[in-house]
């Protein structure tokens, strides 16, 4: 499936493109963090400790004005107190309003974001690619019908559609036992990985159109290749031709789109969580939502997960760009006619 030339192109692009290296480094780092979250997180991300609430990240000091009423000499007095809250190495990224460790939360949030991104993209691919391939391969009325439907889907702002769908359906949540906890390696950590099932299905449903369009475009061009004609002249069925020729030769742009869609879905999931349509409380978007009320007093509650989203999206997009440049047949890849 992967020809030596493809590998050569990947290597060449790797050599010439330092952005690709940054992207891959970021994505690999986030992946490792997500996988080994129970071992890396210093605290259970859900455990609260109110006396440690709203500690700032390292390097920052926060002053806090608090007023309290006290009984002094039989009368009520309003006492104004000015306290200084210092960051501690116990919570390098600070804590949120519930005293939960931000570092642990960001680490666990990576799991949710990447899983939703990956599973959502996979679902979108599973829906979109076959529809697109069939539309492009058969053209005509099939194509007209499928693509008009896709256009209608595209015309809807995906976030609005997603909100409507999440609102419409029950919040389903999938719980998968965390293998590290089950193996007793991290006994104090949450025992389950909580996956927001509804969100995954919804992001898949609102983004499959992109895959359908790309797959259709590829199928339209691949079906004109003579090797497709050759296979048909041999009596191959349409299903055989699509599976054996059209799909493998459409894979590259679909893959590239896939990486970019993972990033887009992470953003979409964050947006949904931010709006409160989340199935889990361990998500970057959820934390941003939580931090919204404290922007003036504890900016880091929203900013830290926000930065995590930015880094993940940039990293994934850089990888996508690298794949696109390296796999672009226009750069002297396989196929093409002439000479």
């Amino acid at each position: 499936m992967v020809s030596p030339r493809t590998i050569r192109n990947l290597k060449r692009e790797w050599r010439n493109n330092w952005l690709a290296k940054i992207g891959v480094a970021l994505v690999v780092a986030i992946l490792l963090v997500a996988v080994f979250a129970p071992l890396l997180a210093p605290y259970n991300p859900r455990s609260q400790s109110l006396e440690d609430s709203r500690l700032p990240p390292m390097g920052f000091t926060e002053t806090e004005n608090s007023t309290s009423s006290q009984f002094v000499n039989g009368s009520v007095q309003v006492v104004s107190e000015r306290t200084t809250v210092n960051a501690t190495w116990d919570h390098p990224l600070g804590t949120n309003q519930l005293g939960q460790d931000m570092l642990s939360r960001v680490i666990y949030g990576a799991r949710t974001s990447l899983l939703v991104g990956a599973l959502g993209t996979l679902l979108a691919m599973l829906i979109g690619v076959p529809i697109g391939l069939v539309a492009g391969y058969y053209r005509g009325r099939v194509d007209d019908a499928l693509m008009r439907f896709a256009d209608v889907m595209l015309a809807f702002p995906s976030l609005v559609l997603a909100v409507a769908l999440v609102g419409l359906w029950q919040q389903a949540v999938w719980r998968i036992p965390d293998p590290f906890v089950a193996a007793g390696l991290a006994p104090s950590m949450p025992p389950d990985i909580v996956l927001p099932g509804t969100v995954i299905v919804v992001v898949g449903l609102v983004t499959w159109v992109w895959f359908a369009r790309v797959a259709r475009g590829e199928a339209l061009s691949v079906r004109e290749e003579e090797y497709v004609k050759a296979a048909r002249s041999l009596g191959a069925s349409d299903a055989f031709v699509i599976r054996k020729h059209v799909l493998p030769n459409s894979v590259t742009p679909i893959l590239v789109l896939g990486t970019i869609q993972v990033a887009a879905i992470i953003l979409l999931e964050s947006a949904l969580s931010y709006l409160g349509f989340s199935g889990t409380s361990l998500s970057w978007g959820f934390d941003i939502n939580q931090g919204r009320d404290y922007l003036a007093t504890a900016w880091w509650i929203a900013t830290v997960p926000g930065l995590a989203i930015v880094l993940a999206v940039i990293g994934i997009n850089l990888v996508g760009d690298w794949l696109r440049d390296a796999l672009d047949p226009g750069l002297g890849g396989e196929g093409g006619s002439g000479a």
Partner: peptide
């Protein structure tokens, strides 16, 4: 009944 096509580049699946 078989066919041989003109373009030796496009008539073979590159993958």
């Amino acid at each position: 009944a078989q066919v041989v096509f003109q373009d030796p580049y496009s008539s073979l699946d590159p993958r």
